[in-house]
Amino acid sequence: MESGFYIKSFCHIKDHKVSLNGSVIYDDKDALDFLEFIKAAYRSFDIKYPKFFKMDGLSKLAFLASDLILQKEKLNIEDENNIAIVFSNKSSSLDTDEKHQESIQNKDNYYPSPAVFVYTLPNICIGEISIKYKLHSENSFFIFDSFNAEYLSDYTNSLLLANKADEALCGWVEFDGVAYDAFLYLVSKEGTTTHTKQNIVNLYNT
């Protein structure tokens, strides 16, 4: 269905590579694991947001992909930037859930912590991005078995058509503690790639 909206830009983070609009802008094949990779990637982009290091893995992943897209928008955070955030994944906040579970598994070694527990919700990463860019906008986090372009695009179109948002940052941010895969895209009235299910799937697979 033609919605009149476009995919203005998109970002992938997977296989130890970061790419923006299809071009690889950072890669580190030798990175030992996700955490080492994402921290090195963050440093390479000179973002200067120390809170990044306090975030859990899922938030680090979502934050970096979002930041690379939103940086290009040159937003003035004093202005109203009505950009909705619509994210999805399979594992919710599983990596942090397991950390909290470890802290309570053994009654003789019991150390539950609020700094961990707060990240046992997938939408916290949306909060992190909203705080950095002062986005007082619509947000929702969906869980699907696999990337679901149809549910995402229908929902995004409904938000934009109802004027609940001017633009929407959408996509997939998956991290299960080992494997990771982020694909985020900005839907707007401007752009060249039309916002259709097929185009989203094509971009996801590039």
């Binding site: 919700l121 939408n123 929702s140 986090f141 869980i143 229908d154 109802a162």
Partner: peptide, 22 residues
């Protein structure tokens, strides 16, 4: 599946309405 912290239950009604509207 909607998992958006403690607004999930009421947000689901808004989401259902949006999918029907659409």
């Amino acid at each position: 599946v909607v998992s958006n912290a403690c607004v999930s239950g009421i947000l689901s009604i808004a989401i259902a309405k949006r999918y029907i509207n659409h």
